[in-house]
């Protein structure tokens, strides 16, 4: 294989995997437009409405960005939902309506997220526990501790902090700008830093990465910390949006499984090493577009759930069906 041969196929070939999220997104958008026009509800096609659709899935988007990091290193995090509840409650209890406590509350929430991520990462990389089990166990522990202390809305969020969820710059919500910045940062980290390429290396082949001199354990731990910190940011956002924290908000939003579904629909491979943040963002858009289609078309909420399950499977099959590998 000479040096001249290698760039040719990447430039000429149409790489399906790279474009699949965009194809799916275009499909979802087309369905949205068609349904809106067909049911004669063209008011849904305005820019404000599209922004409103986006704004509904900000918590999911923030969580999914974090989830992308762990899935890229071939790990997974099921503890995000209970962590979201825990940080939302923690933040709103610490603030308790006083604007002076906003900063300590944010720091406490991020610290909790960091610690949980550290614990997850150490259990996964140090004790070699399967990540699914490790984070599932962590999720049970967090949820158990949380519901031992709180059973209802606890604390309250001062108006100054509600700006995070309700503030707007021009006509764009602050939180949406924050999500965009977070996505750009995550993309930059994955694309341009050594840490980013180490993540892909560890996810692609951990053994090979170790032989290449990468400290694989640290990379796994760091990814888990990033994921958990993202989840705690999502918890802060939800606290700000609901004006208080409750111990069920994470589980109610099914953020653990939905964030995984969003990441996978965005083309990141569960086995690790392939994918990226923009796919995840496309996945999030697909999810929220589909939800809006159901709303516009007035689909019954139970039927919506049935269709949702089918769509998740179908969207993942859209990529996976072409693979020749045996999956389990």
């Amino acid at each position: 294989m000479s040096a001249a041969d290698t760039p040719a196929p990447t430039r000429a070939g149409f790489r399906f995997e790279r474009w699949a999220p965009l194809i799916l997104l275009a499909g979802a958008f087309a369905i949205y437009v068609i349904v809106a026009v067909a049911t004669d509800q063209t008011q849904y096609l305005t820019l404000e409405n599209l922004i409103a659709i986006l704004a509904r899935s900000i918590a999911l988007g923030i969580t999914a960005i974090g989830q992308t990091f762990v899935i890229l290193v071939a790990s997974i995090d099921l503890s995000v939902a209970s962590l979201i509840s825990a940080t939302a409650v923690l933040a709103s209890v610490v603030m308790d309506g006083s604007p002076a406590m906003i900063l300590p509350a944010i720091l406490a929430a991020l610290l909790l997220g960091g610690l949980v991520g550290l614990a997850n990462g150490l259990v996964v990389s140090g004790l070699k526990v399967n990540p699914l089990i490790a984070t599932l166990g962590m999720s049970l522990i967090i949820q158990g501790c949380l519901s031992a202390f709180v059973s209802n809305f606890a604390g309250s969020v001062p108006p100054a902090f509600q700006v995070f969820a309700y503030g707007e710059i021009g006509m764009v919500p602050v939180a949406l700008i924050f999500l965009a910045l977070l996505a750009v940062t995550a993309w930059g980290v994955l694309r341009f830093t050594k840490f980013g390429s180490d993540i892909y290396a560890v996810g692609g082949n951990e053994e090979a990465a170790r032989f290449a001199g990468i400290k694989t354990g640290r990379i796994v731990v760091a990814s888990h910390v990033i994921c958990s910190v993202c989840a705690s940011i999502a918890g802060l956002y939800l606290a700000s949006r609901l004006r208080s924290g409750a111990p069920w908000i994470g589980a109610d939003g099914v953020y653990d499984l939905e964030s995984i579904a969003v990441v996978v629909i965005g083309g990141t491979v569960l086995a690790g090493g392939r994918g990226g943040v923009w796919g995840t963002m496309a996945g999030m858009l697909i999810f929220s577009l589909i939800d809006s289609v159901f709303n516009i078309a007035g689909v019954d909420s139970f039927a919506k759930q049935v269709l949702r399950g089918i769509i998740i499977v179908a969207a993942v099959a859209f990529y996976a069906i072409r693979s020749k590998r045996i999956v389990a």
Partner: peptide, 27 residues
């Protein structure tokens, strides 16, 4: 069949059926 022929990892495939079956039970 979803796992074998559509090549969807079973975690996602059975997650999908979990959501679908729950919806069906409600429906």
């Amino acid at each position: 069949a979803i796992v074998c022929f559509l090549r969807v990892p079973s975690l996602i495939a059975t997650l999908g059926t979990m959501i679908t079956l729950n919806g069906l039970a409600f429906l």
